[in-house]
Simulated scan of single mutants.
Amino acid sequence: MHQKTGLLAAVMILIFSPAVPAAQDVLRIGADLTNPPFQFRDKDGNPGGFEVDLTNAVCKAVNVKCRYVVNTFDAQIPALLARKVDVILPLGVTPKRKAAIGFSRYVFHLPTRLVARKASHLQPQVDSLKGKDIAVQQGSIQEIYAEKYWRPAGVTIKNYPDLEAIYEDLYAGRVDGALAPAVTVMYGFLHTPQGADFALTGPEVTDADLFSKGSAYGIRHDDSALTQLINQGLEAIIRNGRYAEITQHYFGAQDLSVKE
């Protein structure tokens, strides 16, 4: 899962200072690199993962270079609005986020599910979770949902800076479950030795006012030219088959399509 595609070495430069200005032929991409298999650091410390490979392909298609600016997930939108980055790697397109930033066309959809130990028989409903400790990632849609519906009903919500920290506490038994993107949990945790005793439980958690139809690149409202450029790149890699190749590499036949 941590193998680099041929595009990675060719077009990526990793930087750690968000204050570096973007040249005309360089896009500064906001990333947290703590969400395998979507984004992570490879064995050499370079950006890797599904979203990174897709972004490399998009940049190549429109003849620009992507330069990664690494920050925590909940700092991505503030960094975009402060013009420290030009684009954010795909995130859920929610009404609240749409009020703050613009988006590209949809890139993929990730359903939200509860993950817990198989023996716990927990379900994503308040009567099952009351008195339990449930982990969520700070700044995520899942955090907003859990804080709105579960905490007032007696569920203890624990907030984490990234999914890797959630996986550690799940395995250690410091939380009873986590609300997170299902595909991310499946490949980043359940398919590892530490996740062997855990499973996704219950149906997809949805809410029309909170959850998104899909994930897309985050771009400032006033940057219509960049939105058009990103969409052009996405359309190009869909047409030439690169999008399908990258998806197959990471997820096989898993359906990540956005239902319009």
Rank of each mutant, 00 (worst) to 15 (best):
G49Q: 12
C59A: 11
I101D: 03
A75Q: 08
L91V: 02
F50W: 11
R67N: 05
Y68L: 03
D74W: 11
T94G: 09
V70T: 03
A79E: 00
K65I: 15
A61Q: 04
E51H: 15
V85K: 01
N46Q: 03
A100K: 14
V69Q: 00
K65Y: 10
D44L: 15
K43L: 12
A75M: 09
F73Q: 11
V93L: 03
A61E: 10
A61I: 09
A100D: 09
A57C: 04
K98F: 10
A82K: 00
A82I: 00
T72M: 09
G45H: 03
P78N: 05
V85W: 02
G45A: 02
A82M: 00
T94Q: 09
N56P: 12
R97W: 06
V58Y: 04
L81T: 11
Q76M: 09
D74S: 10
A75I: 02
G102N: 14
N71W: 01
D86A: 01
V64F: 08
T94V: 11
L54N: 06
T72A: 04
F50P: 08
N63A: 15
L91E: 07
D53A: 03
V69H: 00
P47T: 13
E51F: 08
G92E: 14
D86E: 08
I88P: 05
C59I: 04
K98V: 04
I101C: 13
I101R: 13
D53K: 12
K96R: 15
P90W: 02
R67T: 10
L91N: 12
V87Q: 01
L89G: 08
D53W: 13
A61G: 03
K98N: 11
A57I: 12
N46C: 06
N63T: 13
A100S: 14
V62F: 02
G48I: 11
A100M: 12
V62M: 05
K96N: 15
A61D: 11
G49Y: 12
S104R: 06
I101L: 12
V70S: 10
T94E: 13
A79H: 08
K84E: 03
N71M: 12
T72C: 15
K98S: 10
T55D: 13
L91T: 13
I88Q: 01
V58F: 10
T55F: 08
A79I: 01
V70N: 00
L80W: 00
G102A: 08
V64H: 05
K98P: 05
G45K: 09
C59F: 06
N71Y: 02
D44S: 13
L80G: 00
K96D: 03
K65D: 14
N46A: 04
N63W: 09
A75E: 02
R67F: 07
C59P: 11
R41E: 07
L80E: 00
I77A: 01
P95Y: 01
G102S: 07
F73C: 14
K60R: 11
A99P: 15
A100E: 04
D44C: 04
R105D: 06
K43T: 09
I77K: 08
V69R: 00
T72G: 08
G45Y: 11
Q76E: 05
V87E: 02
T94A: 13
K84Q: 05
C66T: 08
I88S: 01
V62Q: 14
F103D: 14
R97C: 12
A82F: 01
N63V: 10
A100R: 10
V70P: 01
A61W: 06
Q76P: 04
V58K: 09
